[in-house]
Design a binder for these strands. Sequence first.
RNA 1: GGCCACGUAGCCAAGUGGUAAGGCAGGGGUCUGCAAAACCCUUAUCGUCGGUUCGAUUCCGACCGUGGCCUCCA
Length: 479
Amino acid sequence: MRLTNTLTGAVDDLVPLEAGRLGIYVCGVTPYAESHVGHAMAAIVYDVLVRYLRWPGNAAGGYDVTFVSNYTDVDDNVIARAAEVGRDPLELVAENIDEWEEQQRALNLVFPDVRPRVTTHIETIIAATEAIVERGFGYATEAGDVYFRVRAKPDYGKLSHRDIDQLRSGTRFEPGEGKEFPLDFALWKATKPGEPSWPSPWGPGRPGWHIECSAMSQHYLGEAFDVHGGGVDLVFPHHENEIAQAEAATGTFARHWLHNGLVQRDGEKMSKSIGNVVTVADALQRWRADALRLFVLGSHYRSPANLTDEALAAAESGVDRLLSALRGAPAGSGEPVDPSPERARFVDALEDDLGTPQALAAVFDLARSVNRGRDAGRDARAAQAALAELTRDVLGLRLEAPDAVGVLDVVALSKLASKHGVSCGGSDAESTIEALLAARTDARAERDFARADAIRSDLADAGVEVADTPEGPRWSAGR
RNA sequence: GGCCACGUAGCCAAGUGGUAAGGCAGGGGUCUGCAAAACCCUUAUCGUCGGUUCGAUUCCGACCGUGGCCUCCA
């Protein structure tokens, strides 16, 4: 598989350090506030990457992937936010993590194998900081802070492709207290009153930003590992600093750096100041998880994804299209529909820098083949199975018919039954609907289309869509 | 101000030195009692202006526009 590597600026082959195995670390969220669709986009991108890499159908026959993604559960943002709302920082964080994990389930995301948190890896982080200091890449101040010595690392800036001089000019890096150089950044921050802190060789304090990711990723994946990912906004300084730290401590680090584009709302940056942030909770309220996923996968992961109501409506329709192609599996006769051309295109697309838009095009073409074959009375079962495999296993779509009964109003339905003079066999929604449909089928047989259409339209008002098929009426509940 | 992306049909979005995937929406048709779904047909010359080339949407330059990073951020 080929993937764009920010470090080299090229599309590089993904060559595992150990044959058949891959270690992937993705920067997770800092759970100081509600998660937004940007987090969801990143999560979906790396979810599909991991699903694809594990999939036996990929060009390498499937990798054994270890997927690690962290929670930075203590940092400046967390502390500031907790103070703002007058809550305990760790409690606030726990709540946001719980909510996000519930949403991850709703989004059908594969959980990382390890979800390390800063607060449970303080020892690891202190050890990494000590290694950096011992090797001369870090220094402690009298105040009990520890800084990374940027000038000790001549290749600092190699990820974001900038140099130290360029960074220093034209910016407002403030020479912090005790810093040797304006660009030096904190590995360890001495505690301030009211902040969570842990004992360390430099006194009580807490980890700086950046260090948790280099320490925890190496802890779980080894000093050198395959892939490190995150949003483009993390390239500098976060990932740049991670590289500096990890290489300072161990001489090696991640080989392949992946960065996803950011979500925009109606062509504008999503930001709290503009007030256009769409939270995951909002999004899940308005759109199906499958539609959100289809929306994200419809543009290349490195491009910005412009979230508009129209784009999501299109994605919703796209989901329905796939859903209807997966419905029913007539055996048919004659030449079976062969899914292999689309399957090959799908694999080729993903092999080439995770080309989900083209993979999706192959999927939609396969859906058309299924429908076409089915209309022609051919055996479309194999094609349908392939479609289900590609969409569900690899792209992580659920493509389940909506949970019918739960959302229906039983009382309204039984009123309908009496309106149409139908007695139902049971008191549940399902049997009421069946009874109404039976009455409609009778009406149609008697060519009483007025009555048949009235039943259909009343059911539609109650949220039940009715479609006539050669096998008889089929109903489904809308969302 | 510095660094870097992007600008493709009504909307979203791929892609290529030799006249442009897919989705949604629209138009026409088939099927249906009528619908729905499905199927078939149909809808672009690729921001502007120059340059290189036999030929550019694809390469180079300028300009305009949008976005990202340089400070917290997926």
